[in-house]
Design a protein around this nucleic acid. Structure first.
Lengths: 108, 108
DNA sequence: TTAATATGCAACTATATGGTTGCAAATATA
DNA sequence: TATATTTGCAACCATATAGTTGCATATTAA
């Protein structure tokens, strides 16, 4: 099976899914699928598929009420991404590789 | 064209690419492709493809010396991912949606 | 009861992705 | 010069992904 962080990263790697997720976060309220898909050019089914991917990553939660399915954002899984990133933070502003160290390596 | 952050997220969404990238970061030195691929089960060509994806995301830099191509990690593009994440940080530990707010919405 | 609305499921398409193998070219070594 | 090493390119394959449309079903409203 795919690891949790892989699922989350794959989910947010798609720009449409990032848009959907963002819309749900800023709305800060649960929205039925049709209402969400109304904000996009894409077909409702396209949006539904993206919502499922987001749901499987844990980034969206969906609850049924009557004929509607209310979706809301759950940013918690992003914490794991943040933790993964954290390790590399110390290297962001330091060059990892000084070119001269290998450009001269054969002349020793 | 794909946005920069989409490229970076897609690059790190693959577990093998995360492994390659991590190996290069901890090595903290430039390594030729054959040496990198020696650390994986996958074929050299498979690794080369992943390296190209990482390179296109800016996460790996490659310099040719003689018949060898030295690769090293450049974590800088992760800064952009970190910036994207930052916005959602404030929501990690607060429930975005109180279920009661919509479960009762129709009874008003 | 009839009509409208919200949704899921299934089928289908096109393209991207992750991986392989074989071969040719360039460089380094004996 | 002859051989070994490092690599890129191309072809190929299987599967995943992003998207569509059509239709059936459940719920709500008239």
């Amino acid at each position: 099976m795919q690891s949790s962080i892989t699922k989350v990263l794959k989910a947010v790697a798609d720009p449409t899914r990032r848009e959907i997720f963002h819309a749900l976060v800023v709305a800060a309220t649960a929205m039925p699928i049709t209402q969400i898909s109304g904000q996009f050019q894409m077909s409702r089914q396209g949006i539904t598929k993206h919502l499922r991917t987001l749901e499987e990553a844990g980034l969206v939660q969906i609850h049924t009420k009557g004929r509607e399915r209310f979706c809301f954002a759950d940013p918690l899984p992003l914490k794991e991404v943040n933790h993964w990133l954290k390790f590399y933070e110390r290297f962001w502003d330091t060059k990892l590789q000084d070119l001269s160290s290998y450009l001269d390596s054969k002349s020793d």
